[in-house]
Write a protein that binds this DNA or RNA. Structure first.
Length: 268
DNA sequence: AACGGAACCTGAAAGC
DNA sequence: TGCTTTCAGGTTCCGT
């Protein structure tokens, strides 16, 4: 469910609740998670919560040593804030009960499909250190991205989903960015010129920034939640909002992809 | 190294 | 009203 904007929202909530708080109780309710390692967090203090792409890194400290927890929301993960001692949430997998001063809260990790991860690992954990630049943290250097795309013969949409190239762009924002840049998602990655990549980088930035702006409060805003679809073409059918041509939906790299055959140019 | 496809999971919605 | 199929905003593994 989550892409960069939703993960950033989770980061803010976790940072607010965790930083400076002491871990009092840990409950793990998923046999594929390491209950022993996570249980070892009891007695530590939350130090900071960082994000790179769609990964979160939670730093805890016990005396002078640091412990890292890496968390990924997968397709259906969420972090909820509840009162300490609140009954288990639906699909709750991990509960961190924390206290600061005399204030206690519970951070509940819920995940219907269980594609998400919550693991204790060293700071140089592979999936984290191999991430490409984060478009909103370091920004995206068009020349560097252009060079990297030159080695890829896959569709540009598929390349955008490779987190080692660029961290944080998922299916929605890849779809949106390509529409904004007027590039057909089926275009081969190595066919894009530097000006094409510049337009794409602008599109990525625009759609992620808009996504971030639309996140209000503690709860991520999703299309399904009854709210109006805030995207230009994702999950839409009918006329293109820019040129009026009917949108088309195809499958690329196993993922649903919507584009406008009227104004998104196929680069060859 | 890169590629296409299957696998990992559950549940809601659409199709029949 | 059921039963079946499809689809979902992610990553990883496996055989070419």
């Amino acid at each position: 469910v989550p892409e960069l904007p939703e993960v950033e929202l989770a980061r803010r909530v976790l940072a607010r609740e965790l930083e400076g708080a002491r871990v009092e109780r840990v409950v793990v309710a998923d046999e594929r998670l390491d209950a022993v390692a996570l249980g070892g967090l009891v007695g530590t203090r939350g130090v900071k919560v960082e994000r790179r792409g769609k990964w979160l890194r939670l730093t805890f400290a016990r005396k002078r040593t640091e412990v890292f927890v890496f968390a990924h929301l997968g397709m259906s993960g969420r972090w909820l804030v509840a009162d300490a001692g609140a009954p288990a949430a639906r699909h709750e997998r991990v509960r961190l009960e924390v206290a600061r001063a005399r204030w206690k809260t519970a951070l509940l990790y819920t995940d219907v499909r269980r594609f998400g991860r919550v693991l204790v690992a060293p700071a140089d954990f592979e999936a984290w250190s191999e991430l490409g630049p984060d478009p909103l943290l370091e920004g995206t250097d068009p020349e560097r991205l252009h060079a990297a795309l030159g080695a890829r013969r896959v569709a540009i949409k598929v390349a955008l989903l490779d987190q080692r190239l660029l961290a944080g762009v998922g299916n929605i924002h890849a779809t949106e960015a390509l529409w904004r840049a007027k590039i057909d998602p089926r275009s081969r990655a190595d066919a894009l010129t530097l000006p094409d990549v510049r337009a794409l980088v602008k599109g990525i930035r625009a759609t992620l920034t808009l996504g971030l702006r639309s996140q209000q409060g503690d709860e991520p805003a999703y299309v399904q939640d009854g709210a109006a679809n805030r995207f230009k073409v994702y999950d839409r059918t009918g006329p293109c909002p820019r040129c009026g041509t009917n949108l088309v939906k195809i499958v690329l790299g196993g993922r649903g992809t919507t584009y406008c055959p009227g104004c998104q140019r196929r680069i060859r």
